[in-house]
Design a protein around this nucleic acid. Structure first.
Lengths: 237, 237
DNA sequence: GGGATAAGTTAGTCTAGCCTAACTTATGAT
DNA sequence: ATCATAAGTTAGGCTAGACTAACTTATCCC
């Protein structure tokens, strides 16, 4: 029945530590090291707290840190980050596929469960829903072995009028935005065509599933797409 | 993607606090208040630590505590304990019914997840497996409303030779024991008949599903059963 | 190249939970 | 009724992880 605290098997990282590693992984995707203020922003904590934790993470060999110049994951740190990312995304996928959650409600739940679920549970969940390759928002799920392959994609905001693209992935950090995008039919896999663009950061007219939609450039920048190479109508006789 | 710590909605109890409340609930089932050492034993922590936490729980109005004489849950504390117990047992049930876990492996996983899962998740899990009334070990699952009904049961060790009973529930705190019981076919719902008993705490001979089994009294005391009222062969002429 | 400003760090606190060692209260056996 | 032992508590410490306030380093602009 009631029993002693059960430690999760493995390298034993705390929830907060896993969160820091995820944040640093995320920030490092741009190529630049993760800066203190940026980490603090993502985790909604004070920069001073980050300085303290960054020192501890460096002591544990999870990151390297050059004072005043940001943090980078070590191999061990990256492995841990990808493991947590896998947990998060498998959980999100499972909640939508198996338990009827809508895509705007899975993030918070996954954010808590990812620190408590065992590897076995994650693997069973993944198996139960057919080993998906991406989460409900289109983000790739790292493999059990810790590899992750990002598919090439550009922000929808970078397309010119006339271009078509397939929605690859949407930013999942705002439930309201996700709900709105779902209303518009802008979900991973959907095909969109830029009908027109207004200058000076003006609205973007889209065709999504034969419906006309207009969105702002800020929203468009949160949508990653893979341009569809135009299939020319048979190149002449 | 990565985001700030997401608090679980509600009265906001920490994991350790939920564990204390569960332990006190468990110990109080005997009718006597939960003693410091007993709580410490269940949670595998030092008695001194329990003294400290007990004071805090009393301050929060979750328990009443008379110094040197044990703790009792208040109404608020009992509500919280039952909520956690519901989480735990729904998770155990879901893991076995939906994800193929064996009954000896669900406890530890549930022990961690119960502190992270939202009420909504618990309710969805329960719905997905048909709102079970008991967990895989036969323990009753508290309702969403916080009521729990224990079915009357006695330890198998209290039966006399010749008596038959249905297995109601088994103690789940030892995976090896659970595995062994499963081998013997002693699972909730199984019917057992005491064929013979040896004196002086000797072995108990059982018939389970037409197979003969012999177990010790210690093990028998961990198995709760509901005696089957003997159906007399037609009382008539 | 000298400041202004932004970014980062240090110092000092706080809380939750745990620990051990030492002390106090309760209990039960003679 | 006493006193040994068991049970419980207090005192004092520790760690993780957060905070604010104050200080230091980097950067960038003129």
């Amino acid at each position: 029945m009631t029993a002693a605290r059960v430690p999760k098997p493995g390298p034993e990282l705390t929830g907060p530590v896993e969160d820091y590693l995820k944040a640093i992984y995320e920030l490092e995707r741009s190529g630049k090291p993760a800066e203190t203020n940026a980490i603090a922003g993502l985790l909604a904590i004070a920069p001073a707290s980050v300085s303290g934790m960054v020192r501890r993470l460096a002591d544990q060999g999870l990151i390297t840190h050059e004072r005043y110049h940001g943090a980078r994951l070590t191999t061990a740190g990256r492995r841990a980050a990808l493991k947590t990312l896998r947990r998060h995304r498998v959980i999100e996928s499972y909640l939508t596929s198996a338990l009827g959650y809508s895509w705007d409600r899975v993030h918070d739940e996954a954010e808590r469960l990812e620190h408590a679920a065992s590897d076995e549970l994650i693997d069973r969940m993944a198996a139960a829903i057919g080993e998906p390759e991406t989460d409900p928002h289109g983000a790739p799920i790292p493999t059990r072995e810790g590899t992750l392959q990002e598919r090439p994609a550009v922000p929808l905001s970078s397309l010119d009028a006339g271009e078509s693209a397939r929605v690859e992935r949407v930013n999942d950090d705002n439930p309201d935005r996700l709900r709105y995008l779902a209303e518009l039919g802008i979900v991973p896999g959907a095909e969109v065509k830029v009908e027109a663009r207004e200058p000076f950061e003006g609205p973007i007219a889209l065709n999504v599933d034969d419906a006309s939609r207009t969105i702002g450039p800020e929203l468009a920048s949160q949508i990653l797409v893979a341009p569809i190479s135009i299939k020319r109508p048979k190149p002449g006789r």
